[in-house]
Design a binder for these strands. Structure first.
Lengths: 343, 343
DNA sequence: CAAATTTGCTAAATTAATTTAGCATTTGCA
DNA sequence: TGCAAATGCTAAATTAATTTAGCAAATTTG
């Protein structure tokens, strides 16, 4: 049993008196600094076994108070019930746990004032660092955190004008490749459906699309539709219709939610994939697998992103801000039937 | 700005010296107990504005240390990247936040020794209470927590032989209703695919199925298949085949993952829903919506469950264990095309 | 006018850990 | 034998809050 149910938690004082020594000595020994303080071998044994016998569990609040750190990090993401973020959360959790850290999660719902409140709450909870999936208009919040000196790493998105750690995807490149994939597989007029937001990751995904179109001599056929997140479901039917009417024969969907909602709509209207419309989605996931045609998608290296984020925040927490880490992870295109028109 | 970036966080001592009073007085006033300690109105104003001016933020570790509570609860669930649990997590988070509590989440992966470690870690983190989605063989862990007196509420599942708070679904009843729904809509031989586990919620879901079959005079046609969670994907094709060969014409899937994997398999094999096989799933969700036929499913009142769990744990934390709360929430059957054979 | 009460505040203990400075012994070396 | 160094430990400060007990001074009461 990892925790002893019978006895109440003993304090360091309890252990020390049990052995008949000072709390200082007990503290040294129980923190593995026995030899460093030239404590005798037998004393080390005595104190360790007393601690075990009394089921000593250090009081984390006293420890945090004294040491000025909590070994907790705060993570503010978009919405933990979104599959992309819940997968990310799981990986972050696992990575942090391995390093002895725990995580407070909270969801901003892409609302910058909510995000600011969450961050403020996390800071007053004494987190040692922050991981933040920033939303639109949260530049000032990021700057405010930076000016406190509290370690912070942005995740998934970043602000080009703010000099700050981040881990994101090579959005422009991978989006460009996805569009080229469509162009190389029998589609002549790809479009992109994205969110209407100023956030850089979305700009980059669109820029990647545009770059592929330009370099393929299709600058005049560039077809971008940006939707407000709030009206995703309601505007999708019209948006798809508009695309098809204008001659678009394939689409890159810029997020997992856009992909899911679009596929629902495509299913409902009986639009044939890939014959009538080629499709590449974002972030894959179980959801797409129920669609009648296997969906091609851009896969983000979620586990690696989580690992990197935790590494960076740990480095900042333990060694101070020695350098800025700005990392663009490589996304992969998982090619399947939905993006292939030629045999 | 919810947090002041310029100034470092001032201590109570700082506020007190700034005004020229004792920390006691500052503490009383800043905790809203000014009048209770008959502090003069002007002093209350002075202290409050000093706190604001100095950007005073109480040190949560000192507070927790002294008060013996943290206003944090620990939640151990199956896997936060599973849509059902991530939705639950989001609701728990929102409910807890409203009451000034934060949450540490962790995932057990249905492994009881992992769960035990997680709980042990959470306890040493000083959580005020635990919410636990118990896995198989974690009875001893639950008993151990109970014997410490630390508040705990089980969620989604429970152990009938352990006298402990829980919030779960009326699994037997709702499962029974789902099967009756199939029987009343043109299906004569429903089966159930469940997990091979001793956990009560699964037993109940199966029992509900059996009860419906018995009461419909179909005791001899009872068709239950239980799969190990680990072999869900690999065994599904064979399981479905076995069902169909034995004359089963409709299936109740006992969890969201079973539903998703089964639907993938059904899609792949081209089994026609509902003509060849009627279907009722569990927990709904976006995932099912991409299937070519609208899927009927049992919907759990996730938000209500979260609300209730938080209510109970708060009650235990703040007023001690006055009574045991054992709550079975009502699930609803969302009827759609997949469970209707007659017009 | 003296005693009792009320008012407005403070001192100090408490929570449980970490860590610096330093006190006695004992051992080493000349 | 005597001084220095090493050994093995302790006292007390520190972290920042809450809270009990209680001190003066002002006011009310008899």
């Amino acid at each position: 049993m990892a925790f002893n149910p019978k006895k109440k938690h003993a304090s360091l004082q309890d252990v020390a008196s049990y052995v008949g020594v000072s709390t200082s000595l007990a503290s040294f020994v129980l923190n593995g600094k026995g030899h460093l303080h030239r404590v005798s071998e037998e004393m080390i044994d005595k104190i360790n076994s007393a601690a075990k016998e009394l089921n000593y569990q250090p009081n984390i609040f006293a420890k945090s108070l004294r040491e000025g750190k909590s070994r907790v990090i705060g993570v503010v993401l978009s919405d933990i019930s979104n599959p992309f973020f819940s997968s990310l959360a799981r990986c972050l959790e696992d990575e942090a746990e391995m390093k002895g850290y725990s995580i407070f999660f909270s969801s901003s719902d892409e609302n910058h004032s909510r995000a600011e409140n969450q961050i403020s709450r996390l800071l007053s909870r004494g987190v040692d660092g922050l991981v933040f999936v920033p939303c639109e208009n949260s530049e000032s919040t990021v700057r405010a955190v930076l000016s406190t000196g509290k370690p912070i790493v942005l995740l998934d998105r970043y602000f080009p004008e703010i000099h700050c750690n981040y881990v994101s995807l090579n959005n422009k490149e991978v989006s460009r490749s996805a569009v080229l994939e469509l162009l190389n597989n029998g589609f002549s007029h790809p479009g992109i459906i994205a969110y209407d937001t100023s956030l850089q990751h979305m700009r980059d995904r669109i820029a990647g699309y545009e770059s592929a179109m330009k370099d393929s001599g299709k600058e005049s056929e560039i077809s971008v539709i940006s939707i407000k997140e709030s009206s995703l479901r309601s505007s999708m039917p019209e948006v798809l219709e508009r695309f098809i009417e204008s001659g678009v024969d394939s689409v890159l969907f810029a997020t997992n939610n856009i992909t899911t909602v679009a596929l629902m709509c495509i299913k409902e209207r009986g639009i044939c994939v890939p014959d009538k419309l080629g499709v590449i989605g974002f972030d894959g996931g179980q959801a797409f697998e129920l669609f009648n045609v296997p969906i091609s998608y851009i896969e983000q290296p979620i586990a690696l992103m989580a690992k990197k984020v935790i590494e960076i925040i740990m480095d900042e927490i333990n060694h101070g801000s020695r350098m800025i880490h700005q990392i663009e992870m490589q996304g992969d295109i998982i090619v399947s039937q939905s993006s292939r028109r030629i045999i």
